[in-house]
Simulated scan of single mutants.
Amino acid sequence: MTTVTTRPTTLTATDLRDWLAEPAGPRLVDVRTPAEFAASHIPGSYNVPLPLLEEHRRELAEHLDDDVVLVCRSGARASRAESALADTGTDHLHVLDGGITAWESAGGDVVAGEGGWDLERQVRLVAGSIVLTGILASTVVPQAKWLSAGIGAGLTGAALTNTCAMGALLSRMPHNRRHEPTPEAVFAQLRGGRN
């Protein structure tokens, strides 16, 4: 049975905590990488990494007959997931504003485990390392400064478009895909009811 609410499409951590306390709370779909999800997630969340969600959005939408709150680190990937699922006609989607970061800041419960760095931290490490390497190398080979300029341009573009090509590439690295669920496993979990 489809449950359509009058709740806003963007929820604060407090709104979500109150809604989860109700008997007919929403499903939580966390679209971060499996490594990020393993590090910490909201209890009862399903991990459906954004690339898997985007590739299998139509099949996934068939299993989302309740209200769904999409969660990521800050809200950007969850907004992308919302757009991908909205294209399938799914209309009971919500995004946790500020993501898991806002949830934890508001004192929300998390399941903590061992996991890797979140994607944003990985991007900062890789981008910073490339910029530093470009600057140091430019003392010997002046053209190496353009490597740093390219990273700067990429980060500027990422901020303006609210996307991140480097983050997308890093999310496909083996250490971020450890324990990645298969589409079949995700569909089976969703058919089985709430976590």
Score class of each variant (00 low, 15 high):
183 P>C: 12
156 T>P: 09
86 A>V: 11
122 Q>C: 10
127 A>C: 05
92 H>N: 15
172 R>K: 14
127 A>F: 02
8 P>Q: 11
74 S>N: 11
137 A>Q: 11
110 V>C: 10
17 R>Y: 07
136 L>Y: 00
87 D>V: 14
168 A>E: 13
187 F>I: 09
108 G>T: 04
17 R>Q: 15
60 L>Q: 10
107 G>A: 15
9 T>N: 15
103 W>H: 10
150 G>R: 01
140 V>I: 15
166 M>C: 02
166 M>S: 00
127 A>L: 01
70 L>I: 11
84 A>C: 00
65 D>R: 14
86 A>G: 13
92 H>W: 07
23 P>H: 03
124 R>C: 03
89 G>V: 08
154 G>I: 07
125 L>F: 13
16 L>Q: 09
13 A>F: 00
85 L>E: 07
170 L>Q: 04
89 G>P: 08
36 E>I: 09
59 E>N: 14
14 T>P: 09
142 P>T: 06
51 P>V: 07
181 P>C: 04
175 H>I: 05
78 A>D: 01
102 A>P: 04
164 C>V: 00
118 D>Y: 00
38 A>Y: 06
161 T>I: 04
89 G>H: 01
19 W>V: 15
140 V>K: 11
192 G>C: 10
145 K>L: 15
45 S>Q: 01
70 L>Q: 04
55 E>P: 02
187 F>N: 06
1 M>E: 09
170 L>T: 00
28 L>V: 11
116 G>H: 07
31 V>D: 04
1 M>T: 06
44 G>L: 05
31 V>N: 02
42 I>T: 08
89 G>C: 09
70 L>V: 09
13 A>L: 08
140 V>W: 15
37 F>K: 09
115 G>M: 03
67 D>F: 04
111 V>Y: 02
13 A>S: 13
79 S>R: 11
63 H>N: 08
157 G>M: 04
163 T>Y: 02
166 M>W: 00
38 A>F: 01
49 P>Q: 03
40 S>A: 15
18 D>A: 15
35 A>K: 03
68 V>P: 00
192 G>M: 13
1 M>K: 07
45 S>E: 06
67 D>Q: 15
129 S>I: 01
173 M>Q: 09
183 P>D: 08
97 D>A: 14
143 Q>H: 12
178 R>P: 03
8 P>I: 11
85 L>G: 07
136 L>F: 05
32 R>W: 08
68 V>Y: 04
21 A>W: 01
82 E>M: 13
80 R>S: 05
79 S>I: 01
85 L>N: 07
154 G>Y: 07
185 A>G: 06
72 C>L: 08
98 G>Y: 05
188 A>L: 05
35 A>R: 03
91 D>P: 05
77 R>V: 02
107 G>R: 14
155 L>W: 08
